[in-house]
């Protein structure tokens, strides 16, 4: 197991190194001069030259990459063109917002997904199973930004139950913050909970067909004991893996949800950076998200091996 952890950690470092190269190369696939594109049409030649010099764009490609990577490892991603402050400062401000929403969404989607999956599996073929299955299918298909707009229209505008959009830190005003976060969190959870529901259902159905469960029934155990004590333990192993992989889905979803609800998180920052051609923000954001996703994948892989003793790694 220790060997596996070391091997997996080394691979993660290699992957992150490639991610950093891809991220850095992004602005070099830009047709023309990246400095001119970032500064826009109004920029003078002097300003473009100054930015080229500041970003080391006047040096050879691999020298630029080495400089950028060594700075990035120290948390220095340069100065944002749009905000005129260091990118790391903006990220430090925005990242907690996205992490907070993602964390709440992860809890909600796991809770709903596992609960609905169990109900569907133990009541297979019933009306509730069919309804939940259709809803879960629709949950994967629905554009979350559209769902957000629908929520704003119904619960914010028509029923006036929730605020239309905006963001307040939970440390400033917890009640207001919770009200504002409710719709974005629900929107972010929809895809995740639908995927977890489907996985829990199919994995529990597979476990329920196994001999040791039949034996448990034959011994006269009640349904709750068979399902929760014996079947669920094994059925949840693939679900735990899936939950660990949700970060990728959640951060992707945050890009759209934060735009709809006007939340100043990482997703919104990336969109604003992309629209304003502030590629330093885009580079830093993509790299940071990839680091978080890779670490989450690493933890998931390791926990998978720990949860399922049948899994042995060479």
């Amino acid at each position: 197991m220790l060997n596996y952890i070391i091997k997996r950690a080394v691979l993660t470092v290699v992957v992150l190194f490639i991610v950093s190269f891809i991220t850095f190369s992004l602005i070099h696939i830009l047709p023309g001069d990246p400095a001119a594109a970032m500064l826009g049409d109004q920029a003078t030649m002097e300003e473009i030259e100054a930015l080229r010099h500041e970003l080391w764009l006047d040096r050879p490609f691999f020298v630029q990459y080495g400089h950028w990577l060594s700075n990035a490892l120290q948390g220095d991603f340069g100065k944002s063109i749009m905000y005129r402050v260091p990118v790391s400062e903006i990220i430090a401000e925005r990242l907690p917002v996205t992490l907070y929403l993602s964390f709440l969404s992860l809890i909600l989607s796991t809770f709903i997904g596992i609960g609905a999956g169990i109900i569907c599996a133990i009541r297979r073929g019933s009306l509730i199973d069919q309804i939940v299955s259709v809803v879960a299918n629709a949950g994967v298909a629905v554009p979350i930004f559209w769902l957000g707009l629908l929520g704003i229209y119904v619960f914010g505008f028509t029923l006036e139950w929730l605020p239309l959009q905006g963001w307040t830190s939970p440390f400033d005003d917890f009640l207001k913050s919770s009200k504002q976060a409710l719709m974005p969190v629900i929107c972010l959870s929809v895809t995740g909970s639908s995927i977890i529901t489907r996985q829990t259902r199919s994995s529990l159905l597979e476990v329920i067909r196994q001999d040791y469960i039949r034996t448990a029934w034959a011994k006269g155990m009640g349904e709750p004991r068979v399902v929760f004590k014996h079947a669920l333990k094994n059925a949840l192993i693939p679900v735990v893996t899936l939950v660990g992989l949700q970060l990728r889905v959640l951060v992707g979803g945050a890009v759209l949800t934060e735009t709809v609800f006007n939340i100043p998180g990482m997703g919104r920052l990336l969109v604003d950076g992309a629209l304003a051609k502030d590629f330093l923000i885009v580079q830093a954001g993509v790299l940071l998200i990839a680091v978080m996703v890779s670490l989450a994948n690493l933890i998931t892989d390791i926990s998978h091996g720990w949860l399922d003793p049948r899994i042995r790694y060479d």
Binding site: V19, R248, G252, L270, I289, A290, V293
Partner: peptide, 11 residues
């Protein structure tokens, strides 16, 4: 490691 929508958005 990069969420698809983020990668697509960057490209």
């Amino acid at each position: 490691a990069i969420p698809p929508i983020v990668l697509m958005m960057a490209i």
